[in-house]
């Protein structure tokens, strides 16, 4: 008698009821998983340089003031740097907290509510941060009074 052949579990076609990715969700969770790792690797570089320039180099934390920010954002490189860091860190952090909410908030309404607050905060912070980087004015005139600094035009 012929020996029965047992196929390895992953060979051949997967019956629809055993498919791990439902058509409605697509492979969102896999993309999210991959994004956490990709963004994490990039964030190490972005954040460590950010901490170095603001807390270690020069006078360290004592050197941080409006002039320090103005000096940095005078260069488009630092604008792009901070913009990338803002977006990647916010999306990475938001996805991380989304996973944590899914893990602990078992009641449907609680989970939905917490995630609504999370996404709303993310949108507000990302838009606010982006606008601040692009509309920053190193020499603002507020109520007719011009800001005084050595890098600002006098008169």
């Amino acid at each position: 008698m012929a020996v029965p052949i047992i196929e390895s579990p992953r060979s051949g076609r997967v019956a629809p009821e055993y498919s791990r990715t439902s058509s409605s969700r697509g492979n969102f969770e896999m993309i999210a998983w991959l994004f956490m790792r990709l963004s994490g690797a990039i964030l190490v570089v972005l954040i460590f340089v950010h901490l170095w320039t603001s807390m270690v180099a020069g006078d360290g934390i004592n050197g941080v003031d409006f002039g320090f920010v103005a000096g940095k954002w005078a260069s488009p490189i630092w604008q792009i740097w901070d913009l990338t860091m803002l977006w990647l860190a916010m999306l990475h952090g938001t996805n991380g907290v989304r996973v944590i909410i899914n893990d602990y908030a078992e009641k449907n309404s609680t989970r939905m509510g917490l995630k609504a607050v999370l996404y709303a905060s993310t949108v507000v912070i990302v838009i606010l941060g982006t606008l601040v980087i692009f509309t920053f004015d190193p020499c603002p005139v507020i109520d007719g009074v011009a800001h005084v600094a050595e890098y600002c035009p006098t008169s």
Partner: peptide, 8 residues
């Protein structure tokens, strides 16, 4: 992000 926004 909120405190840095005060530069604006």
């Amino acid at each position: 992000v909120l405190d840095t926004s005060l530069v604006r």
